[in-house]
């Protein structure tokens, strides 16, 4: 464990707590893409089921349980408790355009052609693009509540911090994971436009608004 990865994980943890806080305090999931949240459940379940046969550390297991549990809970909140505040008519991204290519890529690029490793690859590829329905929704509505942008910023910073972690690990441990690194760079890249508006507007106290 190094500082970049620890801060990345904490940023990921924080993003989910911010999202839960937003939903609970406003009693609304307005502005949140159900499709993106459902994709995260698929990502976490596909990747973290190794919880049952591979023990790394208490930290590792606790985080995996938290990510699976919290993402399922968020889906429950959106689908049941705050269902009237969820507007599917603006959440129109076609997720089959993400699922099918990720499934194909995971069959081609994996570290071992076995179900668990293919699922791992699939989760890495899917995570890298899972934010697209959310960003697409943001693009459509053109604006977002500040708290929603804090959630997205924390989520983007998480994977961005994994990049220096991989560079650090390459030089200190000699390990390199080309699948995770490639997908991680793509994932971070998808946030660049968002980061630009977030850092130049929201953090200066202005409203998050995209140019028309």
């Amino acid at each position: 464990m190094n500082l970049f990865r620890l801060l990345g994980d904490l940023s990921h943890l924080a993003s989910i707590l911010v999202l839960l806080h937003k939903i609970q305090t406003s009693r609304s999931c307005r502005g949140i893409s159900f499709k993106t949240q459902a994709l995260y459940v698929a990502v976490f379940v596909a990747r973290y089921l190794d919880l049952f046969w591979r023990y790394i550390s208490l930290y590792n297991s606790a985080m995996k349980v938290f990510f699976i549990g919290s993402s399922c809970y968020i889906l429950y909140l959106m689908k049941y408790r705050y269902r009237p505040t969820n507007d599917p008519s603006i959440d129109t991204f076609r997720i089959e355009y993400l699922l099918v290519p990720c499934a194909i890529l995971s069959l081609i690029f994996n570290y071992n052609f076995m179900p668990t490793e293919i699922l791992w690859s699939f989760s890495i590829f899917l995570e890298s693009v899972a934010i697209l329905p959310q960003l697409f929704m943001l693009q459509r509505t053109g604006e977002a509540e500040a708290i929603t942008t804090h959630y997205l910023a924390a989520l983007g910073i998480y994977r961005a911090l994994y990049i220096p972690n991989w560079i650090y690990r390459y030089f200190t441990e000699g390990v390199i994971d080309p699948i995770a690194v490639t997908a991680g760079i793509v994932q971070t890249g998808l946030y660049l436009d968002f980061f630009y508006v977030y850092f130049t507007k929201v953090l200066q106290g202005q409203k998050f608004e995209l140019p028309a």
Binding site: M1, R5, D9, H12, D50, R54, I56, S57, N60, M63, K64, F67, Y111, N112, E117, Y162, R169, E173, V175, D177, I179, A180
Partner: peptide
């Protein structure tokens, strides 16, 4: 071994 990816990352 191609399966030697670091398995401690989340």
């Amino acid at each position: 071994n191609p399966a030697d990816r670091p398995k401690d990352e989340l």
